[in-house]
Design a protein around this nucleic acid. Structure first.
Lengths: 213, 213
DNA sequence: CCCTCGCTAGTCAAGTTTGACTACTCACCC
DNA sequence: GGGTGAGTAGTCAAACTTGACTAGCGAGGG
């Protein structure tokens, strides 16, 4: 699962009605250009694709008010909202170890009711446990792990990663169950979009050491 | 950086001379179909691309001896070996959090001299530290982390992940410095390819719970 | 007044990835 | 003696991603 559809659907949904550049700007505001493959080309492509599939509705709009080419505004459809929630649930549940998907999922987690978020995360820990078990079972040859040589280190990495993620997931579950944050249906939501007149403090284009490429 | 070029170059190199299906089979033997995007199409595409770029040399070969379409055999060129080592070094050094690249890099790490492997991994830990520092610095607003709301959990995830990886990397460094495994120039290397007449114990096509998709 | 710079908004070609599909042979069963 | 199932080897179109490019407007300097 690629993160871009989730990100774009989520961005359009939060905005209510947005054109490509706004989505692009929101994603940059969230730092998504650093931890996901949300490049301009991908964003515009995703918007068109989602519109073609009926998940977004495209309004043809007159030339921009502030210079630049004419722009298309998008709104999420009912079908799109469904797909958005489906993607979000899947991203939270499944252990697929891609940073961008996980980050996006956390960013949107408060769009779900608190109880469901917790349930999905618990499901996630179960998935991690299963994966861990299947790795240790499946890849240890009968004649002892020494047969694997340095290849055993790959297994070791997986186990290590799985454990770290299980621990982190459990911590998040605890915090959410402890009452942290504001979830769907609990009053004024946290809003993470830029208004039209607001400058983007993170849109510096500056890179940090170790950024994913 | 995508893992596929590294995997394909490494596979061809270990084989000496290999056709696409052999590479595909080796990768499956290594479990790469489960933790990387090494699907048939990608493998054949990579082979052609690498050949076009002079990193592999393509031998046109007569129709297969055992049925199936005619096959092309590939050998790695000097340039290809250089690129292979460059990719391997980069994969070991840079903290780019993609499982497939990391796993591939560990699989091939013994192609480097022991001292260099350690040096690269130490460089990696430095990179992780820097990334960690830049995350904590850059994303904590002046008015306290509470302003971030649940978005702070994304940062938390990154920190957690970075710490886990630093710990794992340090463990690996310790084991290598402690004399584990057999590196380049230290005698009979560990061989991870299938001979032509050998069956592949992992080519069952069976999936495990939690597999990355 | 003109020229460049930066911002807005988006397009495009080239490259990559995906998943389904083809075509051929051999072994085996009935 | 024919069918069929498994294995061998690879192709292909469609989708996606990437990075570079375009084109219009306003601000500011000289």
């Amino acid at each position: 699962m690629s993160a871009i559809r989730l990100l774009v659907l989520g961005a359009v949904r939060q905005h209510g009605r947005a054109h490509g550049y706004q989505v692009r700007n929101d994603l940059e505001y969230w730092g998504a250009h650093e931890w996901s493959n949300a490049k301009p080309g991908s964003i515009y492509h995703a918007l068109k694709q989602l519109a073609k599939q009926g998940l977004l509705h495209a309004h043809e709009v007159a030339p921009s008010t502030v210079g630049g080419p004419p722009r298309t505004e998008y709104e999420i459809t009912d079908q799109g909202t469904e797909e958005y929630l489906r993607l979000l649930r899947e991203a939270l549940t499944s252990y697929d170890q891609q940073m961008d998907v996980k980050s996006a999922a956390i960013g949107f987690i408060v769009d779900l009711p608190r109880a469901e978020a917790v349930a999905l995360l618990k499901e996630r820990t179960r998935g991690i446990d299963q994966w861990r078990a299947s790795v240790t079972e499946h890849y240890i040859p009968e004649d002892g792990p020494e047969q694997l040589g340095h290849i055993g280190e790959i297994m070791n990495l997986w186990i290590h990663t799985a454990d770290a993620e299980a621990a982190w997931t459990q911590g998040l579950i605890d915090r959410i169950e402890g009452g942290a944050y504001t979830f769907a249906g609990e009053g004024a939501p946290f809003v993470g979009v830029l208004r039209d007149d607001e400058e983007n403090p993170y849109a510096t284009g500056e890179r940090h050491p170790g950024d994913a490429r």
